[in-house]
Design a protein around this nucleic acid. Structure first.
Lengths: 347, 347
DNA sequence: CTTTCGGCCGTTAGCGGTAACATAGCCGAA
DNA sequence: TTCGGCTATGTTACCGCTAACGGCCGAAAG
């Protein structure tokens, strides 16, 4: 029952274009035009509308707008995890590019579960996004079908070893594994152990190992011992695993880790245990996580172009490619091997 | 012009309820009921509709649904950064709780910029979410106004030192700083240095320092020297900063870091430089990042209840509180100090 | 002076669903 | 038999916004 009062707004129904149109004395359509910066509106009208909207505290309703225009400025980005440090970096690349396109990334997380991936994809598609960026190439059949039928650009990222639904941007993890194996062999290491995630979930780690063992095989060698773990990777896990594998096989002369985090834990363990790295024992991780620069010794690793992958994927989605194409692209980037200080010089 | 052909779907207009209704011989309304599991539908009809929907590959349109029902199952979650490790953990807590409520978190990232925060909030509100979870208590006036007028539950998280728009869940960073200072003093350290982010951006770090210095002052002491940095925190940064501050003030006997990551870098530097930790020099970080367990020495730190904060916030938003209230709540959690192995025993 | 044209703004008809109500059977109780 | 009540389904009227088109008006062109 307040007569004048401060900005009421309390528990009134939410504002619509009509409120702004009444407050500024023009039609809803004109208000819509002003707020979207589309079509011709005189300067004076524009100002009137804008100030009315601000005064009321009007926030457009994209639900209604999207339905009417059949267009939504969302890009679905589906990744396995956020706690991996790898994916936030991809997201950064995506955001960088999308920021000045009016497109907005919306992130879904699958926790490496195919069922969850399917659900998340379904949820996201039900918002009718303008594009999908999806990590990996391995998906359930229904998920593939949804992507194929969505009628929007799809970009699968991180990995190029397999068949893409539409476009793909990534590196070959098989080749990455091969490259690392060759570098290790070139430095004269021969008794090699592997430490990593339980394979079934992480397809890219699996492919790395596959390329790795294949390259060893060419040299007539094989992985001597393996140590698996589940759950998230942390320094402590790397320490424990390293201790365990070395207890079993003290004769190993190289340890290949499936990621930098556990590799760093292993490095700390070895240094603490007085093991001569890299002469007596070489170490290598994967990913090139710069967060870990600053370790007592720089861990050998392989950069995976995460920022670049994010950027290129976003460019495809937003049509910023050379010829404006938004589908059927295939971009393979080349990972760069950084020998750090935990692989001895080639001999 | 294919006559029979495989699932056509190629470049046809996207499917609607009508398509499913025609394919299954019932009204659109009935299809809607089946797909939403709402209202009575006979078993046989349900099956028919479901199989028709699956066969066609129908994906509901939440844009239309949301407009019609005036309800949307989205929760806006607005945080400063994803590369901080702290926020993904909060997200985990949120997801855990939201997972079985039908509500879905949508994440927006502000990069610690108030302008960006305002934009992101505006964007999110324009999708008419059912709630907002927002990091921190410091926001621009327009942002506050938007939240106040949105007519939905708002939960500000992480920090309780200040005035909330609606509900708040977090810890007192002022008290956290005090607690750490008291622990440090109790162990007999007297010449204390601080290393952290440039304050203006990170309000919580600022409040910690504020509480910290206040507690020192009570003991007639003050922070002897400070070392600031900008950009993201990493081990290397921690090393460099530690080296710099110790070069200036080799007499310091304690270093308080604004987060665990740079603290860990500092620890590695000190160990490498042969400094006696914690006797000659004590160290402490902040956050209790478990990722870093496994360092040569466990860094003193303070757990910030991130998972719990996420959970409680989500519970408020989803009405899972004791009395079902969704607004006006205030929950202050107590951070736990972990002295690790870088503070010597109290004397 | 009429015609044309472009700038500015309004009107109309949906977009694809759902709330609310109406309806048609069917059953059992009065 | 009648009638209330229940179940299973259909009908209608929007939700808030925008595409498409149309109208008006003043200025430039014929």
């Amino acid at each position: 029952m307040s007569l004048t009062s401060e900005p009421r707004l309390d528990h009134r129904r939410t504002l619509t274009l009509r409120d702004v149109s009444e407050a500024s004395g023009v039609s809803e359509m004109t208000v819509s035009r002003v707020l979207r910066n589309r079509g011709d509106v005189s300067h004076s009208t524009r100002d009137r509308v804008l100030s009315a909207a601000k005064a009321l505290g009007y926030v457009p309703n994209k639900i209604a707008g999207g339905l009417a225009s059949q267009r939504v400025n969302l890009i679905a980005v589906i990744i396995p995890s956020l706690s991996n440090m790898v994916f936030p970096e991809v997201l950064t690349g995506i955001s960088e590019v999308l920021d000045d396109t009016g497109l907005q990334p919306v992130v879904g997380v699958t926790n490496y579960s195919p069922e969850r991936e399917e659900r998340v994809l379904y949820e996201m598609l039900s918002w009718r996004p303008s594009g999908v960026i999806m990590a990996g190439l391995e998906h359930s059949d229904p998920a593939r079908a949804m992507m194929r039928n969505a009628g929007i650009p799809i970009v699968e990222i991180m990995d190029v070893d397999g068949e893409a639904v539409d476009s793909v941007v990534g590196i070959s993890h098989i080749r990455a594994g091969q490259m690392m194996a060759q570098a290790i062999l070139a430095s004269g290491y021969r008794k090699i152990g592997f430490l990593g995630t339980q394979m079934p979930h992480d397809h890219r780690a699996r492919k790395r190992l596959q390329g790795f063992t294949a390259a060893l095989q060419v040299a007539g060698l094989e992985v001597q011992d393996r140590e698996y773990y589940e759950g998230s990777s942390a320094l402590l896990k790397g320490r424990e695993m390293t201790q365990a594998i070395l207890a079993r096989r003290p004769d190993l002369d190289f340890l290949y880790y499936s990621n930098d985090m556990i590799g760093a834990g292993g490095l700390l363990h070895c240094l603490g245990a007085g093991i001569d790295v890299p002469e007596r024992l070489g170490l290598a991780g994967f990913n090139g996580v710069e967060l870990l620069d600053g370790l007592p010794r720089r861990l050998a690793t392989m950069d995976t172009c995460r920022l670049e992958i994010g950027r290129r994927a976003a460019e495809i989605i937003s049509g910023k490619t050379a010829d404006g194409k938004t589908s059927g692209l295939r971009i393979e980037l080349s990972p760069r091997l950084d020998p750090g200080e935990t692989i001895r010089a080639p001999r």
